[in-house]
């Protein structure tokens, strides 16, 4: 297990190099010159040129990339082009917000998804099963920005139960977390259901029944543990798309998280900001995947043997 984690940590290095390179190239290719944008409208040619030199933008691309990487290794993500503040400082303010949002969303994905999946699986083809599965299908098909706006309209504007946007109190977390977690919850629900139904037909469930165990013991102790193994993988995969989703949801609910920061930075061609944001986001992604894989191994020890 220890060796496995070390191996996976080493794999992070090429991933990070790849991500930074791709972002770097894309930012070079997009139209719009950071120096021009930064200098502001009506700036003289000389000012723009001076800026370009100051920022190192006049150097060849590979030199820019290498100097960027060597700075990153030393923990320096550069300064924002907009306000010349360290990118890292800004990220450290934004990241916790996004992580909080992601945490509550994944909580909703897991808890809601599992409950719905179990309800469905316990009485397959009953009305409760069909009802849950129809809702799940909706949850998968609805685009999250649409769901977000819908929820906002109903709960914030019509009913006025919850705040419209922002990130100041617990109440602010609820709608964005639901918006972001709903799609995943639907997928987890479907996965839990099919996995449970498969497990319930296994010989060892028959053994558990033959022992005289009550239905809830059979479901929660004997069936669910086995059914969860594939569900964990799905949750892990969901985390990736969930991180991507933060960008949208943060925009819809005007939350100043990492996703929104990256979007704003792209708009203003604030290259160091974009690169720093994407780099940190992918680091988070890689670590979460490692966490999920480790959990999967703990749950399913048989994998370790092979």
């Amino acid at each position: 297990m220890f060796l496995f984690i070390i191996k996976r940590l080493l794999q992070i290095v090429p991933v990070i190099l790849g991500v930074t390179l791709v972002v770097f190239l894309i930012m070079q290719m997009v139209p719009g010159d950071s120096a021009v944008i930064l200098a502001g409208e009506g700036a003289s040619k000389e000012t723009v040129e001076q800026l370009r030199v100051d920022l190192g933008l006049n150097k060849p691309m590979h030199e820019q990339y290498i100097s960027y990487i060597s700075n990153v290794v030393q923990g320096d993500l550069g300064n924002s082009l907009k306000n010349n503040q360290p990118v890292l400082d800004e990220i450290l303010i934004r990241l916790p917000i996004t992580m909080e949002l992601a945490f509550f969303s994944i909580l909703i994905t897991v808890v809601l998804g599992l409950i719905a999946g179990i309800i469905s699986a316990v009485r397959p083809y009953s009305y409760s099963d069909i009802g849950v599965m129809v809702v799940a299908l909706l949850g998968i098909s609805l685009p999250s920005f649409w769901l977000g706006i819908l929820l906002m309209y109903v709960f914030s504007i019509k009913l006025q139960w919850l705040p419209v946007a922002g990130w100041d109190s617990t109440a602010h977390i609820i709608l964005p977390a639901i918006t972001l977690g709903a799609g995943g919850a639907a997928i987890v629900a479907r996965m839990t259901r099919s996995s449970m139904l498969e497990v319930v037909g296994q010989d060892y469930i028959r053994t558990a029944k033959a022992k005289g165990l009550a239905e809830h013991v059979i479901i929660y102790k004997h069936a669910l543990r086995n059914a969860l193994i594939p569900v964990i993988t799905v949750v892990g995969l969901q985390f990736g798309s969930l991180l991507g989703g933060t960008v949208l949801v943060e925009s819809v609910f005007a939350i100043n998280g990492l996703g929104r920061m990256i979007v704003d930075a792209i708009r203003t061609r604030d290259i160091p900001m974009v690169q720093g944001g994407v780099l940190v986001a992918s680091l988070v992604f890689v670590f979460v995947n490692l966490l999920v894989d480790t959990m999967y191994r703990v749950f399913n020890k048989r994998i370790d043997l092979n």
Binding site: T207, A210, K211, K221, N226, N300
Partner: peptide
């Protein structure tokens, strides 16, 4: 009532030893 009998008054050894035990317990 049946649950009080299963595994208590009547027990069963199944034909499939490889799959009749719960793999995670």
């Amino acid at each position: 009532e049946l649950r009080k009998i299963r595994g208590n008054q009547i027990s069963m050894i199944f034909q499939e030893p490889m799959t009749s035990l719960n793999p995670v317990i």
